[in-house]
Amino acid sequence: MAGNRDRFSTFSTATRLKELGERTAAHVYRSQSRRHIRRSRLTGRAALLVLVLCTLVVALAYPMRQYVSQRSEIADQQRAADHARKRLDQLRDEKARWQDPAYAEQQARRHLHFLRPGEVGYIMTDPGSGAAEHRRGGQSGSDRPWYSNVWDGVDKADRPGE
């Protein structure tokens, strides 16, 4: 320490302050350049990380969209399959009903106006229904038995000019 005092004592105060300022400035400059180097490395690393993340997002965007759309298609197909199963159950029930001769006879009597031997069938129409077109005997085509409509069609086919 005494050596440093001797060296400083030979110079003026201004020279000593100047030398001290230069050392301090050099020290500050070195520490800033080290910090700047560290910052530039971190900035480069951060940029690389951002680039990798963006690449991953872009690379995964299409497969994710496909995944989501396929999941919705699967859900739609499952709903359709459930609906088809319910419809199949209904049709099986209806088939089982048609295997019953009593049900088949009931439907034939109701829709085709079938009668058992010895029965007399009557079809009643509502006079207040206001149907504009009545056919033979006050019955419209939908109120008549099916066989009457068939014969009327055959009769009309024989007379094409009418």
Results as ranks from 00 to 15, higher is better:
N4Q: 03
N4A: 02
R5M: 03
F11C: 02
T15N: 03
R16D: 02
L17C: 10
L17D: 15
E19G: 12
L20N: 05
E22K: 00
R23F: 07
T24G: 04
T24P: 00
H27N: 15
V28T: 12
V28C: 04
Y29G: 04
I37N: 02
R38H: 05
R38I: 06
R38K: 08
S40K: 04
R41W: 00
L42Y: 00
T43Q: 04
A46N: 12
A47C: 10
L48H: 11
L49R: 05
L49S: 12
V50L: 14
V50K: 09
L51R: 10
L53K: 00
T55G: 15
T55S: 13
V57A: 14
V57M: 12
V58F: 14
A59T: 14
A59Q: 10
L60K: 02
A61Q: 07
A61N: 07
Y62N: 07
M64S: 14
R65L: 14
Q66K: 08
Y67T: 13
Y67R: 09
V68Q: 13
V68C: 07
R71P: 01
A75L: 15
D76G: 13
D76L: 14
D76A: 14
Q77M: 14
Q77D: 13
A80V: 10
D82H: 06
H83R: 11
A84W: 01
R85A: 12
K86A: 10
L88Q: 12
L88H: 08
L88P: 02
L91K: 15
L91S: 15
L91N: 14
R92M: 13
R92K: 15
D93A: 13
E94Q: 13
K95V: 15
K95I: 15
A96F: 06
W98D: 07
D100G: 01
P101A: 08
A102V: 09
Y103K: 03
Q106I: 03
Q107N: 06
R109C: 00
R110S: 10
H111D: 04
F114A: 05
R116C: 03
P117I: 04
P117T: 09
G118Y: 02
V120S: 06
V120Q: 08
V120D: 05
G121C: 01
I123Q: 08
M124C: 05
T125S: 11
P127R: 04
P127D: 07
S129C: 13
A131W: 01
A131L: 07
A132L: 04
A132M: 00
A132C: 00
H134N: 07
R135Y: 09
G137K: 13
G137M: 10
G138T: 06
Q139P: 01
G141C: 03
G141T: 12
D143Y: 09
D143G: 15
D143P: 01
W146M: 05
W151Q: 11
G153E: 07
D155N: 09
K156Y: 06
D158Q: 09
D158H: 04
